[in-house]
Simulated scan of single mutants.
Amino acid sequence: MKFKTNDGLDLYFDIGGKGIPCIFLHGGPGYWSKSFHHYSKVLLEKKLNMIYLDQRGCGRSGHSLRKDYSLNKLVNDIEELRVFLGINEWIVMAHSFGGILAVNYANQYPEQTKGLILSNVTLNMYDSFAHQMKKGSEILRTEIKELSAKSISTFIEDYFSVVVKLMEINQYFNFQYVDVANKRAIDIIDEIGLNSDPDFQGFIFSSEEFFQDFTTLTNQISSPTLVITGAYDDAVGPSHHKLFGFKNSTEVMLASAHHPYIENQSEYKNTIMNFIDSKFSK
C-alpha cells in the first residue's frame, strides 16, 4: 500500500495483525521494512496491529528528487501516516537507525506516542560508529585512530576505511550476527524490491543533524519505553543503551547480536509481549 506525503512523495507501507497499533521504523540508514515484516508476522501480530513503513528514499518508497531527507521531513512522514490511517495513538517501534526517528517523533508528538519499543537502536551515531571502529581496529590489529567529531566527512571516511578492510576478511557482519548464516537468509528476502536511493544514506552520513547526541532527548520522554539490547551487538555497541535516560523504561538484554528477532526469536517475542501486557492491558 502507498500514501502520498504533503510534498507529493509516495511512501510504501504494509499492515498486519490485530491489537494496539504499532508503527515500525527500520534501520540502515537506507534499508527497508520487508525483512522485519517477514519475521514479525509470526512473532508480533497476534497482539499488535503492525504498520511497516519504508522511509522516504528507502525500499519500495519514492525517492525525493530534491533529496529532502532531513530529520524533520522523516519525522513528519511518520505523523502524516498516522493521520492518513486515522489512528489516535500508537506504539512506536524502532530498530537500529530507526531509533533516532522514534525518539524525535516521541519528543515532538508525545500525545500520539502510546509507548516506545526500541530494539538495538543507536541514539548517537558517532558513539556507535566509534565503537565499531575500535572493535574493528582490534580485529585488524591496527592502531586505533584518535577519533574526532569535529569533521563528519573525516570521521565517516575513517569509519568506512575500517569497514572495507573488515569486509575484505569477511569479518564485518560478525558485528551484526552471532551466526553469519542468518545474513544469508536476509539476503534472500532482500533480493527483490529493495530499491533504496543511494543519496539517502549519503545525505545521512554527511549531515550534522543526524550526528547529534539524541540520548539527550530520552529524559524528556515519559511514554512507557522498552529498550532491547544485544549482548553481542557490536553494530551499535552492547553498552550503548547505558547512555539513555528514559523516565519510564524497561531494559532487557538478550543473547543475540544486532538482530534478536532473527537470532533469539522466542525471547524477543516474550520480552515484547510481556511489556505490552504489563503496560497496556486493561
Score class of each variant (00 low, 15 high):
S153F: 06
T142D: 02
S153T: 12
G136E: 00
V178T: 06
Y177I: 07
V178M: 04
K165A: 14
N182Y: 14
T122H: 14
Q112T: 13
T122N: 09
I152Y: 12
A149Q: 14
Q176N: 04
E157N: 10
Q171C: 13
N182C: 11
L123I: 07
G136I: 00
V163N: 03
K114T: 09
Q171N: 14
E146A: 00
N120S: 13
E138L: 08
I117L: 08
T154V: 12
F175Y: 13
H131N: 02
S161W: 02
V178F: 01
K150T: 13
S153A: 15
Q132W: 03
T142V: 13
T142W: 00
I156D: 10
T142F: 03
N120Y: 04
S161R: 08
V121M: 04
D158P: 00
F173R: 15
Y159V: 05
N182A: 12
V164F: 14
N170E: 12
S128C: 07
V163M: 07
I156H: 10
V162S: 00
E138V: 11
G136D: 00
V180M: 12
E138F: 05
M125I: 07
N124S: 06
N174A: 02
K134R: 12
L166P: 11
F155C: 10
S128T: 06
Y126V: 09
T122C: 07
E168H: 13
F129P: 02
Y172Q: 15
Q112G: 07
T142A: 03
I144D: 05
I117R: 04
E146D: 07
L147S: 09
E143D: 11
V178Y: 03
K165L: 06
S151K: 10
E168R: 10
E143P: 02
N120I: 09
E111Y: 00
E143C: 09
E111A: 07
V121R: 03
E111D: 08
K135W: 11
I156A: 12
V180K: 14
L118P: 08
E111T: 07
S137H: 15
I144M: 09
Q176H: 02
N182G: 15
A149D: 07
F175G: 00
D158T: 03
